[in-house]
């Protein structure tokens, strides 16, 4: 597939400015870029979260349906089936749902829409906590990150469990297309959205969307953080097609994980030992991913 270039990006906007989201919001960028690719023949689904607060107030220029927190997969199923009943075949049905609505309360409906094989795109806007309610931990919050419900104190030391790996869970559902992305790698992300739109069946993309408020950094640094997550291999970019995992961007000389962590207040409480532990876990995770990618090549 030929790579997208900046020049090729459509100038049309389907994600409207002047909405309620914060300055430097990663999710805003993720929705704007995806809708540029998907275009006006798109119906958007969302559930409560930062993105619904924006979309519902008029940020969506395409038709929008908002449902209960747990219902993302169900809403996708219903809209797609109704379009099928009407004989409409050329409309993208896409969900923008946060990590809480995906990894926690909406996991059953997500699993089911994929299992039933509906022709939909599910984009998880991953800012790694319940940011719309002020930053509580979700299943997608990474190990040791401080949230309002997992504070970084002397005893509690942030979240005690690792991040739930939804992309690989989706890959194990045998979804025809699964990908991770980062708003710091806009073209890679948009290519993935474009690819997803061209494949029939359920597609899942989890895009890392840094959150200045929840992560604790200056709003001008969102894209930088999104790039750093990839450059440190904390958030690898890959896609899984027909069970074959392919790493889509490989940082040649990875930056130390500390560089990413120290740039965010949610990791302020980390000790030197913590940093070493997290570096080790990232290295192990990367090695495992490389193994999966290699076995797919063979």
């Amino acid at each position: 597939m030929a790579h997208l270039t900046i020049e090729e990006l459509p100038s049309e906007e389907y994600y409207m400015p002047g909405n309620a989201l914060c300055a430097g919001c990663g999710e805003s960028l993720a929705m704007r870029l995806a809708l540029k690719i998907l275009g006006w023949r798109t119906i958007v689904i969302t559930v409560p979260g930062c993105m619904s607060a924006a979309l519902i107030m008029g940020a969506s220029a395409v038709p929008l349906l908002v449902g209960p927190f747990a219902s993302g997969g169900a809403l996708l199923s219903g809209v797609e089936t109704a379009l099928e009943a009407k004989g409409v075949k050329d409309v993208n049905v896409v969900a923008f749902i946060g990590d809480g609505g995906t990894a926690d309360i909406g996991l059953q409906a997500l699993s089911a829409v994929v299992e039933r094989g509906h022709n939909v795109i599910y984009i998880c806007l991953d800012n790694e906590a319940y940011m719309n309610t002020g930053g509580q931990r979700s299943g997608a919050t990474p190990l040791r990150a401080a949230t309002t419900t997992t504070p970084g104190g002397r005893l509690f030391r942030g979240k005690l469990q690792p991040k739930k790996n939804i992309p690989l869970i989706m890959a194990d559902h045998e979804a025809p297309y699964v990908a991770t992305a980062s708003i710091g790698f806009a073209l890679d992300y948009m290519e993935k959205v474009k690819k997803a739109a061209g494949i029939r069946g359920p597609k899942y993309i989890q895009v890392l969307c840094p959150c200045p408020v929840g992560w604790g950094y200056h709003e001008s640094k969102t894209v930088e953080l999104a790039r750093l997550a990839v450059a440190t291999r904390v958030w690898p970019l890959y896609e899984v097609e027909k069970g074959r995992l392919k790493i889509t961007y490989e940082p040649r000389t990875p930056k130390p994980v500390r560089e990413y962590l120290r740039a965010q207040r949610r990791f302020d409480h980390l000790t030197e030992e913590d940093l070493a532990e997290l570096q080790k876990l990232v290295d192990e995770g990367w090695a495992e991913l490389k193994l999966k990618a290699r076995s797919a090549e063979e």
Binding site: I45, G67, A74, L75, S77, V79, A82
Partner: peptide
Amino acid sequence: MATVAAAS
């Protein structure tokens, strides 16, 4: 909710 979505 799928019924609501279809009806919508």
